[in-house]
C-alpha cells in the first residue's frame, strides 16, 4: 500500500515539485500516473522509495513510514519495491546478467536460485541472448528491458515503472504493459508513469493525473479526462469548446516531443 498525505516537496534549488499531494494506492491495484514533463511524477517515485524525504507531509509505503523509519530500515523498504527507473540506473561495468543477478545477491539469494530466476526474467523481457553484454552495448529499449527484468527478479509486492516504454516501439510497449498487467493480475501492485496516451487508453485502469505538483484528476479508464483538464486549464486562451468530442486533436506534436526528451 502507498499512502501520500499532504505531501510537499521542495528541492534545494527552490523548485516546488509537489504542492500538497494526497494519494492512496491499495495493494493489488494497477495505476497509471500521468502528467506533463516537470509535473512531479518522478519526485513522487523518489518519495515512495525513500530516495527523498518529503519537505512536509507523510509517506507510507508497504507499512514503512519513510519520515519515521530508521536509516537501517530503508534497504528493507526498497526490497519490497521493484523500480524501473526513467534513466534505467544500470551498472555499466557489469553485464546484463550481473545487473539483474545483483538485485538477488543483495537479498542473499543462493547461486542456484539466482541462476534459475535471472535466466527466467531475462527470457521474459526477451533478452536472454544478450545476457553477457554490457549495458553500454545495448540500445535504449534493451536497457529499459534490463531495468524491467531487474525490477521483477525478486518478486516484489510493488512494482513502480517510470516511463518503462519511453524507448520502446509501440509493439514492444504494448507487450511490456501487458506483462505488467499480467504481473498485477497475480497480485502485485503496479504503478506506471507514462506520457503515452494511446497506450493508457488501451487499458481500462485507474489514471492519476498530476500537474504543477498537484493531482488534477483521479479516475478509472483512460487518459482522456486528464486531457480534458489540460485543455481547459493549461491553455485558457485557446478556445477548445468541446474537448470531449475531439479528444485526439490538440497538442499532439508537443506530446511526441516530450517522449523523445
Amino acid at each position: 500500500m502507498i499512502h501520500l498525505s499532504d505531501v510537499y516537496q521542495s528541492y534545494a534549488t527552490g523548485t516546488r515539485a509537489l504542492q500538497g499531494i494526497n494519494l492512496r494506492i491499495e495493494d493489488g491495484e494497477f495505476v497509471f500516473l500521468v502528467g506533463p514533463s516537470g509535473s512531479g511524477k518522478s519526485t513522487i517515485i523518489k518519495l515512495i522509495i525513500a530516495e527523498l524525504l518529503p519537505t512536509a507531509g507523510r509517506v507510507t509505503v508497504n507499512g514503512y513510514n519513510t519520515t519515521k523509519m530508521r536509516a537501517s530500515e530503508v534497504p528493507y523498504l526498497r526490497r519490497t519495491i521493484g523500480v524501473v527507473f526513467q534513466d534505467f540506473r544500470l551498472i555499466e561495468k557489469k553485464t546484463v546478467y550481473e545487473n539483474v543477478a545483483f538485485a538477488m545477491r543483495i537479498v542473499g539469494a543462493s547461486p542456484q536460485e539466482i541462476r534459475n530466476r535471472v535466466a527466467y526474467v531475462l527470457d521474459l523481457v526477451g533478452l536472454a541472448h544478450k545476457a553477457r553484454r554490457k549495458p553500454t552495448e545495448l540500445s535504449g529499449g534493451e536497457q529499459q528491458r534490463v531495468s524491467i527484468a531487474r525490477a521483477l527478479v525478486n518478486n516484489p509486492s510493488l512494482i513502480i515503472a517510470d516511463e518503462p516504454t519511453g524507448n520502446l516501439d509501440p509493439d514492444r510497449s504494448l507487450e511490456i504493459m501487458m506483462l505488467l498487467e499480467h504481473i498485477n493480475s497475480l497480485g502485485t501492485t503496479v504503478l506506471v508513469v507514462t506520457h503515452e496516451k494511446e497506450l493508457v487508453n488501451q487499458f481500462n485502469q485507474r489514471v492519476v493525473a498530476i500537474d504543477g505538483g498537484l493531482i488534477v484528476s483521479d479516475r478509472t479508464g483512460g487518459y482522456y479526462q486528464y486531457e480534458q483538464y489540460e485543455n481547459r486549464y493549461k491553455h485558457p486562451g485557446e478556445s477548445t469548446p468541446e474537448p470531449t468530442e475531439q479528444p485526439e486533436q490538440p497538442e499532439q506534436p508537443e506530446q511526441s516531443d516530450e517522449q523523445q526528451a
Binding site: 523498504l77 526498497r78 523500480v83 561495468k93 538485485a103 543483495i106 531487474r150
Partner: peptide, 11 residues
C-alpha cells in the same frame, strides 16, 4: 554503482 546498489535495496 554504489548509488544504484543502495537504491535497489543494498544494505
Amino acid at each position: 554503482e554504489i548509488g544504484i546498489m543502495k537504491i535497489i535495496g543494498a544494505t
